[in-house]
Every structure is written in structure tokens, then in C-alpha cells.
């Protein structure tokens, strides 16, 4: 299989005079927001732990992003992720009195294109374990490890001080390591239980 890469928009063409941007709405949207759709989707999936809900959240986030695009200066990714997060928290606030238990315990994803990949079992387990972590740790891990955002960007998205981001990351990794790494030898564990 051959891959076709698109010609990228260059980093230094990002900043343009504002008057020109007004004339190229679509360009700006494409450059700024649309490339981060998968990132927004991934973040929403791990935040909501529900595919249908994530779809609503991302759609809502993109609508808001389109409307507010003038307020985005610099990196579109952190800005968009912050909007995704806001949409999720707005949703939580609106549905606080509704029974959310069903949503919150829903298993992480079933039907992705990657399901054909080998080692799906372990990937599923990792997704589930990650999905079970408390939200602050989960989202910090997703933004850092899956989306490769810097501490500063994560602080920007989550509205937490850098120190908090760092301690959440450390704690999150520790929890994940406990669940994934220390249970990797089932034989040994069974032997110990006997």
C-alpha cells in the first residue's frame, strides 16, 4: 500500500495579517481547526467514554470554534481542545441531575478501524484501564501521551497550573503502571495468591 501525503501548510505561513484572514475564512478554518479533528475526537472519547456523546461534544465544539475563530491566536490545537473540554463540562452541568451512571460505566469503544490490528486485546485493555482512571489524570495522560502536548499547552487546555499538570501526570502514570505493568505476569500473581 502506498501512502499519499498532502502538501502541508507551512508553519511560517500561519500568521497572516488579520484583514487577509477575513477574506479566507475557509483557509483559516482548515489550517487552524480541521487538522485537529482526530485529536479532538480522541480527547472527547476519553472524556465522555461514550461514542455517541463524544460525537455531540465534538460537533458542538467545532461549531463554537468556527464561530469564535477570530479569538484564536497562535496554536489551534490547544485552543480547540480547550473548547472541547468546555463543551464537555457544560454538558455535565446541564445533565447533572440526570442519571449518568450508565454513560460513565460504558465500556470504551467497540467499533474502530483499528479493530483489525493485531494485539487488539491488549490495546482494548489499555483503553479500558485508561478510561477507568479518574478524569483529571485520564485527560492529562491523553493530552500528554496520545496528543503529545507540552505541559504548558496542557495547562492552557485544562486551566490548571503547570505544577498541578505535573503532579497529575506523575500520579496518572503511576496508577496506569500499577494496573498494566504489575499485572502482566498472571502466573506469578496466581502463584502468590495461593
Amino acid at each position: 500500500m502506498t501512502r499519499r501525503w498532502p502538501i502541508p501548510r507551512l508553519a511560517f505561513s500561519r500568521r497572516r495579517p488579520a484583514r487577509e484572514e477575513a477574506g479566507h475564512d475557509e483557509d483559516r478554518v482548515h489550517r487552524l481547526i480541521l487538522p485537529h479533528l482526530d485529536a479532538a475526537w480522541t480527547y472527547a472519547r476519553y472524556l465522555t467514554r461514550d461514542a455517541a456523546l463524544a460525537e455531540d461534544i465534538v460537533q458542538d465544539a467545532f461549531l463554537r470554534a468556527f464561530r469564535a475563530q477570530a479569538s484564536c491566536h497562535g496554536d489551534g490545537k490547544a485552543w480547540l481542545m480547550a473548547i472541547v473540554r468546555n463543551c464537555w463540562h457544560d454538558w455535565l452541568r446541564a445533565h447533572r441531575r440526570v442519571e449518568t451512571a450508565a454513560i460513565l460505566t460504558d465500556p470504551v469503544d467497540e467499533n474502530t478501524p483499528e479493530s483489525l490490528l493485531e494485539r487488539q486485546g491488549e490495546t482494548d485493555r489499555l483503553r479500558a484501564v485508561l478510561g477507568d482512571l479518574p478524569e483529571p489524570f485520564r485527560e492529562t495522560l491523553v493530552l500528554r501521551e496520545l496528543e503529545e502536548m507540552s505541559y504548558r499547552e496542557i495547562a492552557e487546555v485544562t486551566g490548571a497550573p503547570i505544577g498541578t499538570v505535573m503532579s497529575r501526570l506523575a500520579r496518572g502514570r503511576e496508577m496506569l503502571a500499577k494496573l498494566m505493568l504489575e499485572s502482566e505476569e498472571p502466573d506469578e500473581r496466581e502463584a502468590m495468591q495461593r
Partner: peptide, 20 residues
């Protein structure tokens, strides 16, 4: 080791075509 676990690209999700 923990970072290596999480570094699998398959942990990310691909946005569904309909949403796009």
C-alpha cells in the same frame, strides 16, 4: 515503560467519517 505502553498509535481514535 508506562510511556511505551501509551505510545501505541492505536490508542488514539479516528473520527468517524459521518462526523467529519
Amino acid at each position: 515503560a508506562t510511556r511505551a505502553l501509551l505510545s501505541r498509535t492505536s490508542l488514539r481514535h479516528q473520527a468517524p467519517g459521518a462526523l467529519r
